[in-house]
Design a binder for these strands. Structure first.
Lengths: 223, 223
DNA sequence: CTTCAACGACAAGAACGCGCATAGGTCATG
DNA sequence: CATGACCTATGCGCGTTCTTGTCGTTGAAG
């Protein structure tokens, strides 16, 4: 899942970025409203986080323009004041949630998870394909009841696969959501990580879940 | 479906080309405005993608000349700036859609699909002839409910057949849309691939769908 | 009806490129 | 310094794409 963070305070911004990256999100950080809007308009984010107090183009303006362009990506607003009218304005303008500073990082992570969950219809909280179960809240993965340990990147890839199970995922689609902007298209990192995942998830199992669609990409499914 | 991409940044251009080819489009890449115009004027493309910031002949000029020559091919404009007036000018000049860089490849593909769909008036999303069903979104093909696995080339050929079912398709028409411009006219690759398709689609079925029009070409239809 | 040329069907295999596996290198962390 | 995560690089196997050549079919002329 790729997240855009538009936050002018460098310290806060990089703090959020690090926290999110630890949780396997691909994060692009941007300290400028106008540039943030441009990035957001590409539509390749699964979540956008905007500080309302931005120099230049204010956060609220970014949000309204975004919605005007029919970008439906969930938006989480960060605001210094807890003034109610600020929040209301934000929600009216099309924000999906807000958070007042200072905030606990855990709460931020929880709200991020909630917003992303909303996107994938299922509200149960866990994702399941065959006997493979993934719990985004605890980042726990099991197959057949057996715990599977994944690295940050492996987890990010698997979560993306599970949220889009049964669909062909092309390499560009995968890099767009699992890696961040400075992804180098001309390497085979994706193949390598799919291979890592296969070793941990499919190796030795009767039912393979990760399938190669030659010439197109990959697909997670039960045959 | 054949696409012309006029883009001077080699990296961006080849990235787009690769992405489109993964989706079974035949892509011609061109880094020069004047040459791009020449190619576009041949009229054998289903979609044309033009960067506005070209050396020599600017993209906007290419577009206006194209429309002056009554070429109605859908045009998608690529622009570095998100400046509103650029977009407006482009649309006024006869472009069908625009995209600002940097863009998500998913969005580009979505817009390409939308433009091509508009052209063929098909809006349901899936194509169907008799009990043969093709779903462009998932690249899934079934006949009589039974899944059929196709290679990238076979799929491209079948999609072209289905989008022009009931009409005679000559070899030049087929090579123009399914292969790209460096196609060797003096081979029988087309016949060979039609044969492959027959094996997977018509072999053993009561109703044959692929018919040979001797001296002309092929045709997809129910008798 | 027979003959013949043109055209298409099909088989077999060569050439090519994709995806896989593995090894190694870099960087951050403790 | 040791470890693990992330990424790069490379060679190989195999599926895909294309070429080549032969055989079958069609339809018109003799």
């Amino acid at each position: 899942m790729r997240v855009l963070v538009v936050e002018d305070e460098t310290k806060v911004g990089s703090f959020i970025k690090r926290a999110l990256e630890e949780e396997s999100y691909a994060v692009d950080l941007c300290e400028d409203g106008a540039q943030g809007l441009d990035l957001a308009l590409t539509g390749s984010y699964d979540l956008i986080m905007i500080d309302l107090m931005l120099p230049g183009l204010p956060g609220m303006e970014v949000l309204t323009r975004l919605r005007k362009e029919k970008i439906q990506t969930p938006v989480l607003i960060l605001t210094a004041q807890s003034k109610v009218d600020q929040r209301v304005k934000g929600l009216d303008a099309g924000a999906d949630d807000y958070l007042t500073k200072p905030f606990a990082i855990d709460e931020l992570l929880a709200r991020v998870r909630a917003l992303l969950r909303r996107g994938t219809a299922e509200s149960s909280g866990t994702l399941q394909i065959d006997d493979l179960i993934l719990n985004p809240a605890t980042r726990e993965v099991t197959r057949g009841g057996q715990r599977i340990e994944l690295t940050v990147k492996e987890y990010a890839l698997l979560e993306y696969f599970m949220r889009h199970a049964g669909r062909v995922l092309t390499r560009p689609m995968i890099s767009d959501h699992v890696w961040n902007q400075d992804f180098d298209t001309f390497t085979n990192v994706i193949d390598v990580y799919v291979n890592y995942l296969r070793n941990k998830i499919d190796r030795g199992r009767a039912r393979k879940l990760i399938h190669t669609i030659r010439g197109s990409g990959y697909m997670l499914k039960v045959d």
